[in-house]
Design a protein around this nucleic acid. Structure first.
Length: 354
DNA sequence: AATTCGGGGAT
DNA sequence: ATCCCAGAATT
């Protein structure tokens, strides 16, 4: 069968109209590819539009502050993508005279650009015959060719890459790569794929063997760890304190209220007695008000956070404790800082007055 | 080779 | 609840 001919035929009839499909500018393609890593088109689309409006060229992105970049990225998740995006923009602007590399090999050297993204940019922008292998490609190929090698195993990654390279239409890799991904996203979906109208129905191994729901095979992921977060919302005359998350871990370089992590959930009585709370507030307050009686459950891919917000009015705002330093800000100015969705949700629910 | 990075939509 | 999304970097 002529796999890529059918695929491209399908694509030309069924593709979505998307803003990054009307350009071959590597800057735009790069932005879109980074944003769409592990992210649905519907979720990434508004961010792409905001970004290219705020930063029309790589030079605009390069001269922005990381805080502004993270603020525009807020809510999209996997924030290392935004930090790497900013780093690479500065590199391209300053070291490469604003011009993106035009080969897979050189593109892959850019921070945040891996095998998939380098292949996508090289093929779409420069028609280099390199095959993309994303979640869609794994699904389509595993089903059509009946491959049950786990897609996240070392052998699977190698096997699917080789097959993808073999199938690639080397005269129009840009069309082919986008076609197979779009086909996976719209037609050969994870659940309830449209096998009835599928152009590959006759030769699809999964369909012929009734294994549509068994493919692709993926090794089990690690279980989620539960953590208990206590945020102190410290107020004085319309001001509060926030801190920037440092080191490696979730939400690096984003802002939050002073955080106390505890081994388990703490009650209102226990909280005031915690040494860390005493260190932070001293005898500087009358009463700590628990904002949410039930902990807010905030679920990440590999972590479950049980979160309580504690609101307290003080006589003096703490500037620092031991290793942590705080930033004193007017409370309404908190909207200027990049924060995790968890904090953003609190800000929207917390009716700040006086 | 396994783990760590977010958030949301579909089922 | 569970799975997965135009994956990459780190351990």
């Amino acid at each position: 069968m002529n796999f890529c001919k059918l695929l491209i035929e399908w694509y030309l009839l069924n593709q979505r109209e998307l803003p990054w499909r009307v350009t071959k500018n590597p800057y735009n393609i790069w932005i879109s590819e980074i944003m769409l890593q592990q992210t649905r088109v519907a979720q990434g689309l508004p961010y792409y539009l905001k970004f290219v409006e705020a930063f029309p060229t790589v030079f605009d992105l390069a001269k922005a502050s990381e805080e502004k970049v993270l603020k525009l990225w807020q809510g999209l998740g996997y924030y290392s993508r935004a930090r790497n995006l900013h780093f690479t923009a500065k590199h391209v602007a300053q070291e490469l005279n604003g011009e993106f590399p035009n080969t897979y090999k050189e593109l892959k050297k850019l921070k945040g650009v891996g095998d998939y993204t380098a292949s996508a940019i090289a093929s779409i922008c420069f028609k280099e015959p390199v095959a993309v292998v994303d979640g869609n490609v794994y699904r389509v190929l595993s089903r059509v060719f009946g491959i049950d090698t786990p897609i996240n195993s070392t052998e699977g990654i190698k096997e699917f890459k080789i097959l993808a390279e073999k199938l690639l239409d080397k005269s129009q890799p840009d069309l082919y790569n986008q076609a197979i991904m779009e086909f996976g996203a719209l037609h050969c979906k994870p659940k309830s794929p449209y096998c009835i109208t599928c152009p590959f129905q006759l030769e699809c191994q999964a369909f012929q063997q009734g294994k549509i729901n068994e493919l692709p095979v993926k090794l089990k992921k690690t279980k989620v760890l539960t953590k208990y977060f206590n945020y102190l919302v410290i107020l004085k005359e319309g001001k509060t304190v926030i801190q920037q998350r440092k080191g490696n871990g979730i939400w690096k370089n984003l802002y939050q209220f002073p955080l106390l992590e505890t081994p388990k959930e703490v009650s209102e009585k226990e909280f005031e007695e915690l040494p860390e709370v005493r260190e932070l507030l001293g005898d500087n307050f009358k009463k700590i008000n628990l904002f949410n009686k039930k902990p807010i459950k905030h679920v990440l891919s590999h972590r479950k956070l049980m979160v309580k917000f504690w609101v307290v009015t003080v006589n003096e705002l703490p500037q620092a404790v031991s290793t942590k330093t705080f930033k004193v800000i007017a409370y309404p100015d908190i909207t200027l800082y990049p924060v995790p969705v968890l904090i953003e949700n609190f800000i929207e629910n917390f009716n700040f007055t006086k």
